[in-house]
Write a protein that binds this DNA or RNA. Structure first.
Lengths: 232, 232
DNA sequence: AAGTGGTCTAGACCACTCC
DNA sequence: GAGTGGTCTAGACCACTTA
């Protein structure tokens, strides 16, 4: 060993051995202590490197059993869900939004379950349009839980978009989403200025607080041709 | 302090303070050393906790400047891109696939650039259909770089799907993808047994080796109604 | 029973950046 | 110059799992 190796270099070197099949799928890697000797560093440094590889899904670690190169690498793709304003402004465009609808109503069963509401419970329903340089960008249909987030009742969502307000004012712990393709219906046609039947990227998103009680449920229908970008 | 606190508990506690607005957006957090004193642990333990929060995008760390609660939390969503076989089998269905086309041809300009080919260079072109319980699941159109992956020329992709083979035999360093919604064209109609114009979820994916030279380019068109699931 | 990874400690040095 | 996070060390104990 010439230089003191950092965890990044060790991680890269191990990743190289895995990619080059020097350590093929299923291979049982040397223990941390052995690697520490090989690389001439402390065990903690190796640990950091291998832990990152485990986070990335390249290896699986088990106490006593050791670290194995994964058989079927399940790649974890990441993509960022920014506030739409940032997304638009990063393209160098002017972001605006329009509140189309705001009512307090009884939500459908799915949302009711998510919010843990009784059959007669109500929630805040919003519809809004996000625009980039005055061109429709995404059409938002949202329910907000007034039990977990009562302050939302008095917010003027024509001034602040619900997304931005919630991000700054609602507690947050996690969420789930689904991406699908749907044909534009009449509401979408009006809002997004497209034709009936046009294929739209649709993102449905649920957000939970720390008790896993639903805070908000939102459906975003993006304008025709929109692409979600990601990395692996 | 009663018990010795682990980094998970510290991470949870700090996340709580951020979610509860006790430490609002933009707030300058105490330094690691202070937190170590408060929590009665070593600085490295606090470091681990705060580093994870930084990875999750809740705080931003800068040397000398300290750690700040982020203003516009950009949530990183993750979703898994498994081998389609696993995806189907996890639903308790029988996975099969059919090779529809296999040619060596001159790829379009986009693929040529990705693979760093000359104008007259060729690559392997595949079309395949993935089925779940004999029902069309996804239609795959793929180009494979025969420079980076020459062994692909002699593989029988009617026996092993290209995805599975590449995952096990091609070096890998990274990739990018885009998700969009597209109307079904004639080819998709034939393969996926749908109607012309039906909205389909389409995933385009590029994969690179360690030199950032393209290995494969693939487009997956999922059957009508397919949803991609993710977590945040 | 033994060997693995998971975690923590107390200390150290360095790189960076703000003052 | 001084204070922050980034990293590394050498050692320790523990939890877990397999043999």
């Amino acid at each position: 060993m010439d230089n003191p190796l950092g965890w990044r270099e060790i991680k890269t070197e191990i990743a190289r051995r895995i990619n080059s099949r020097e350590w093929p799928p299923g291979f049982l890697m040397p223990a941390e202590t052995s690697l520490a000797v090989e690389f001439g560093c402390a065990r903690a440094t190796v640990n950091r490197a291998v832990r990152e590889l485990a986070d990335a899904g390249l290896v699986v670690r088990k106490r006593r059993a050791g670290t194995r190169v994964v058989e079927n690498p399940i790649r974890k793709a990441q993509f960022r869900i920014p506030v739409i304003r940032s997304e638009v402004e990063q393209q160098g465009k002017l972001y605006t939004h329009r509140l189309l609808q705001r009512t307090v109503a009884r939500p459908p069963a799915g949302v009711r379950a998510l919010f843990r509401l009784s059959e007669r419970g109500t929630a805040l329903q919003l519809a809004a349009l996000h625009l980039a340089d005055d061109v429709p960008y995404a059409f938002e249909s949202r329910w907000i839980n007034l039990v977990t987030t009562p302050e939302a009742r008095n917010v003027d969502f024509s001034l602040v978009s619900a997304n931005e307000w919630l991000v700054k004012h609602a507690p947050y712990s996690g969420g789930s989403y689904t991406i699908s393709a749907q044909a534009a219906d009449d509401a979408a046609v009006d809002a997004l200025n497209c034709k009936v039947g046009d294929p739209l990227v649709v993102v449905d998103r649920n957000t939970y607080d720390t008790d896993l009680c639903g805070i908000t449920q939102v459906q975003l229908r993006y304008a025709v041709g929109h692409q979600l970008l990601g990395k692996m």
